[in-house]
Design a protein around this nucleic acid. Structure first.
Lengths: 335, 335
DNA sequence: CTGAAAGCGCTTACAG
DNA sequence: CTGAAAGCGCTTACAG
């Protein structure tokens, strides 16, 4: 409509149009440095009217900043609880957006950090959020070595790591205690990769509950490091033979598979055996019966993590460890 | 260990160390412009040994490029099939990584494009991949107006849009035909937001199957635009009363809810009623009985979409519409 | 084949 | 309070 293809308007254009220097325009926009109120208003008015948008890349180059955050998501297919990471991502993105930051995604499959390395050495981000931690964690080692600001979602044993987590230990302790108090002593604990820090925390909570109740764990009822579905199926068989009263699942993916196996064998929950999961996600949402589990606010976790890494980037002091609250949600499966 | 905190080494440092100009170093690295073989080798050797990494941001500023792609993910919680988008994202990331591009994530809730707008007006990306299309699509309109290179995953009716999609129409037509051929005429079609292009395609396939088989659709058996679980539950009741022989679900989230309701009412699949879904994802993976559905390769879709948008960015000619193949997977639920 | 210089669009000491 | 100039780390006509 007569509109000509406009080149992007720059700070120089604004300066020229207003008969001031680029310095002045820059100051009016950033709010840094002394500048006359009237001058500032003129500049602000002009850029508003002409829809001027500063080039963030150029700004970044001058300031050695990118206004990007890297979020590292786990890329292992089956194990992952997608909903959790999704929700978390929403939280991160919400805060990041407010602070004018964007999210660069890195996908990490079993501790392979090549994608993260590329992003860091290309200087594409100002900080990193790790969505999952390993007991032995190459991402953490790499980031510490490179002195890149980062936080982890989930706990870590590495010293000096800023961590945002739910209180998994305490949550699992509580859920386990409740089950013990209901009189079920023969609990089978299934799932969980011991290389993940969260598994360690859950396990500790599980153990503490037994101690607190003066009960003793039957070590043959612990089934960790299950790497595939077939193994889970076999374990369910075994657990049934051993007359377990309750199956406690480390996460919902495992729980979902356990429930499938139980259905196939026509074992009724909760009549024949009780089931609970250390995690709640939409995977089990539509299950009949409804499944007792721990409830965590993943979005909140993401928001806090994002806020924290931004603080770190700006050099603020932050807590080394932030623990968010949880809920125990009792449902039909443990009635 | 005596190692001093090194500032990042730049192209100027390399040039000085080698006694050549920055121009020469730049050319050796980029491979553009004439340069002596011996000189190039010297430069390459030096940067290799000293672990020099070009600053992508600076390079981008000089070339008006970012080496970033924006991927727009749907942010509506319930409706979304996460696994699909996740897989797709993996595919995108895999190709992007190979081409030295990174992924900037934008989350779009019900056609709200503010996040995308920010990323575009901040010039943070060279191109965009839209993971879901709307019949009336503000993202598409915005990107076309701004002349930003982009492709859509899923089809679109806007002219000139580069689309990568599975052949949903044809897939749904085939699955519907099979069911009709099995002798089930009373099919209830459930779910699907008519604002999504994919719903339109599926519906068209459904209709064509009826036409092909010389059957007539009972319009009162179509239940679209279900926005919440309660509605689905009610519809299942209605469908049962109306003696439907098969429930066809537009996607797995809907199907999962339908199955839940059926279980609660102790209606057996496939004995009392058959069920199939126009989509396959891990949501239904552990269901007993296994569910007949259409199978699509989401990762492949992501890979092709990424490759295509990269081609568009580089000004290459690309197909306006690429349709990927599918599979019909018959399982127990329609036996 | 190689280099000096201008430019990408900002920021920020420094000087006035 | 304001501006000229240098700088962020690259690329790329242009000239030789």
């Amino acid at each position: 409509m007569g509109k000509e293809e406009k080149k992007n308007i720059t700070i120089a254009d604004v300066a020229e149009a207003l008969g001031v220097s680029k310095t002045t325009v820059s100051r009016a926009i950033s709010g840094k440095g002394r500048i006359g109120q009237e001058t500032r208003d003129r500049v602000l008015k002009y850029i508003e009217e002409h829809d001027y948008k500063p080039n963030v890349i150029a700004k970044g180059l001058a300031q050695s900043k990118t206004y990007n955050l890297c979020v590292v998501m786990p890329g292992d297919y089956d194990v992952v609880d997608l909903t959790f990471f999704q929700e978390c991502l929403f939280g991160i993105q919400e805060i990041a957006g407010i602070m004018e930051y964007d999210i660069l995604l890195s996908i990490c499959k079993n501790n392979d950090i090549s994608s993260l390395e590329r992003i860091i050495s290309n200087r594409k981000v100002d900080g990193v959020i790790l969505m999952r931690t390993f007991v032995e964690d190459r991402q953490i080692e790499y980031l510490q070595e490179k002195k890149v600001p980062f936080v982890t979602i989930g706990s870590s044993n590495y010293t000096g790591v800023i961590q945002i987590d739910h209180n998994h230990k305490s949550a699992c302790k509580e859920l386990t205690s409740i089950i013990l108090m209901k009189g079920m002593k023969r609990i089978a604990l299934i799932g969980g990769d011991e290389n993940h820090v969260v598994t360690q925390s859950r396990l500790r909570g599980f153990r503490e509950a037994y101690e607190k109740m003066g009960e003793v764990i039957d070590p043959t009822m612990l089934f960790l490091n299950l790497d595939n579905h077939v193994v889970i199926d076999k374990i369910v068989e075994e657990v049934l033979e051993r007359k377990a009263e309750c199956i406690l699942c480390m996460d919902d993916a495992v729980c979902s598979r356990v429930l499938k196996k139980l259905r196939e064998k026509h074992v009724k929950v909760p009549k024949d055996i009780r089931v609970a999961s250390f995690y709640n996600s939409s995977v089990l949402e539509n299950n009949v019966p409804s499944i007792t589990s721990l409830s965590f606010d993943a979005k909140e976790l993401g928001m806090v993590a994002c806020k924290t890494v931004l603080d770190v980037i700006e050099g603020a002091e932050v807590e080394t460890r932030t623990l968010l609250p949880y809920e125990v949600v009792l449902k039909e499966s443990t009635k």
